[in-house]
Simulated scan of single mutants.
Amino acid sequence: MAGWVAAALLSVSGAGASELEGAGDHSEVPRVAGSFIVFHESSDFDRLSIPTGAWDGDQFESFERLEGQVLRLSYNFEDPGVTTLRVKRSYLQALEARGFEILFSGSEEELSSGAGRTFFRESGLFDRGARDCCRVANRDRQVRYMAARSEAGNVLAGIAVFNARRVDGPAVSKAIVTAAEMDATMDHQPLTADEMETGLVEDGRVAVPDILFEVNSAAILPESAEALESIAELMNAQSSMELLVVGHTDNTGDFDYNVSLSLQRAQSVVNWLRDEYGIAGARLQAAGAGMMAPVTTNRTEEGRAQNRRVELVERGR
């Protein structure tokens, strides 16, 4: 039986006439036979937080994060005889056969109140697909969910199976991230000390986008050295200058986590300037703004990349 179910998942036959033109499956997480794609969205680089535990009313019990290429897909089944349980079991067994680790699996009240509807909404993984095609049914929702990670650890997926409004058979929504490093190639030079000073004089603050960190970490990447050296040059040239170093994130993930991470990253910059360049610690203060002050939209990968930044703000003398 398990072999038949896995084979059914790997089959892409039976896609209906309503298949979304130009859309395709993820190579490691294909569809269950009989379903067809009704929503497709991809980005070259983003960060995805995948719940690996239930929603307890305030937050998810646990989650995994990964940065890389993100693919969001939604599928419908035309056959009302296909059950949500069958579809979920098909995915679970086929993914395990491919070496995936099932990080979490639950259904309805195991996920959250509202027979899993709250979990579906609060995860934020399926918002775009739900708006365009696949809203959870008001009754008989049968929300089922699994989180899985590939054997190599480079693919992380969250998959929801549910009954949707105005759909004859079940619906499936997926959010999948495949690990990849951001292309850090810059067609501009990092800000010079003079350019930073101009920004501080004219605007009271200046963004330093060339300070980069490891994924989900406050560890500064080596390619940030030139920008950090320019800050040191500025402070050595302006011996009375005092600065706030403010970390910013995009709006992906938990609010408290992002505030904490932004503060830790700002503190890493302060520590670097103190330890590597001898800038007095009293002249620098770290602060974390999390997602609270975006400079542009968080609805695109490009916008989120701009919102992840470090800013310098001149303190009063």
Score class of each variant (00 low, 15 high):
4 W>S: 10
5 V>F: 13
11 S>T: 04
20 L>P: 05
20 L>I: 07
22 G>T: 15
24 G>L: 04
27 S>Y: 05
27 S>E: 13
31 R>K: 12
36 F>H: 15
36 F>M: 04
43 S>T: 14
48 L>G: 05
48 L>P: 12
52 T>C: 14
53 G>A: 13
55 W>G: 01
58 D>V: 05
60 F>L: 11
61 E>D: 15
61 E>P: 08
68 G>A: 13
71 L>T: 14
72 R>E: 09
73 L>D: 01
84 T>S: 13
85 L>Q: 10
85 L>N: 07
86 R>D: 12
88 K>P: 00
91 Y>S: 00
104 F>P: 01
111 L>S: 04
113 S>T: 12
115 A>N: 08
117 R>F: 01
119 F>R: 07
121 R>T: 09
127 D>F: 07
128 R>H: 05
139 R>I: 06
139 R>W: 08
140 D>F: 12
141 R>H: 03
142 Q>V: 01
142 Q>M: 10
143 V>F: 03
147 A>F: 08
150 S>P: 09
151 E>T: 12
154 N>Q: 11
161 V>N: 10
161 V>G: 10
161 V>Y: 08
162 F>V: 05
163 N>Q: 12
164 A>F: 01
164 A>R: 00
166 R>K: 06
166 R>L: 05
167 V>T: 15
178 T>C: 11
178 T>W: 10
183 D>I: 09
188 H>F: 10
190 P>M: 05
190 P>V: 04
191 L>N: 04
191 L>V: 06
200 L>C: 08
204 G>Q: 00
209 P>S: 01
217 S>N: 07
220 I>Y: 10
220 I>S: 08
223 E>F: 02
229 E>S: 13
231 I>T: 09
235 M>D: 09
237 A>Q: 07
240 S>A: 08
241 M>R: 15
243 L>D: 00
244 L>E: 01
248 H>Q: 02
248 H>G: 00
260 S>A: 13
272 W>K: 12
272 W>S: 10
273 L>D: 01
278 G>F: 05
279 I>P: 04
288 G>M: 00
291 M>D: 14
299 R>K: 13
299 R>G: 06
300 T>G: 04
300 T>E: 05
301 E>T: 05
302 E>C: 03
302 E>K: 06
302 E>H: 13
304 R>E: 14
304 R>Q: 15
304 R>C: 09
305 A>L: 14
309 R>Q: 06
313 V>A: 08
313 V>E: 05
314 E>H: 00
316 G>W: 15
